[in-house]
């Protein structure tokens, strides 16, 4: 390691720390209803209140599909016909674990351009407003 190698390393670590400290935190209002936002190709498709247990099938025109299991306060990706299955391995998103998940409030299926996000009531209302 030479001197400038260490400078590079220091810059990286400082930038990482800053992003880590600024990351989204757990939902503070535990009693309010939270929502699942389904986004395909950058467009919001659906906002679902996370109040009951059921499965949602997301089908795209080209045959890509994903099945999301929702439950009170959270959701998980149950099934996908994508190539890498990364979305399945990203586990559950719940109001409590956002602060400790690598992808915070999101599950992403990169090959299907699909983003599932857990959003608060205020965020959901903002989006529903015309």
């Amino acid at each position: 390691m030479k001197r400038r190698d260490l400078i590079i390393l220091a810059v990286v670590l400082v930038a990482s720390l800053a992003l880590y400290l600024l990351r989204p935190q757990a939902v503070t209002d535990q009693d309010a209803t939270v929502y699942l936002r389904i986004t395909v190709d950058g467009q919001t498709q659906e906002l679902v209140a996370l109040t009951e247990e059921r499965e949602i099938r997301i089908e795209q025109e080209n045959g890509d599909y994903n099945i999301v299991q929702i439950f009170p306060g959270g959701f998980r990706m149950a099934e996908s016909n994508c190539t890498n299955q990364d979305c399945i391995h990203q586990g559950d998103v719940t109001v409590d674990n956002i602060g400790s998940r690598a992808l915070a409030n999101e599950i992403i299926c990169l090959p299907h351009k699909l983003v599932l996000s857990l959003v608060t009531q205020e965020e959901a209302q903002q989006e529903l407003a015309p």
């Binding site: 390393l9 990286v12 880590y20 989204p24 986004t39 950058g42 999101e106 992403i108 983003v115």
Partner: peptide, 27 residues
């Protein structure tokens, strides 16, 4: 690229975790 294609700017925070890992792997 993921931020652009998925139009999800919040992904930038993911780098807070990926960059230290990238530094270790790069080392």
């Amino acid at each position: 690229l993921a931020m652009i294609i998925l139009q999800t700017p919040s992904l930038v925070f993911y780098l807070g975790l990926l960059m230290p890992a990238g530094a270790v792997m790069g080392f």
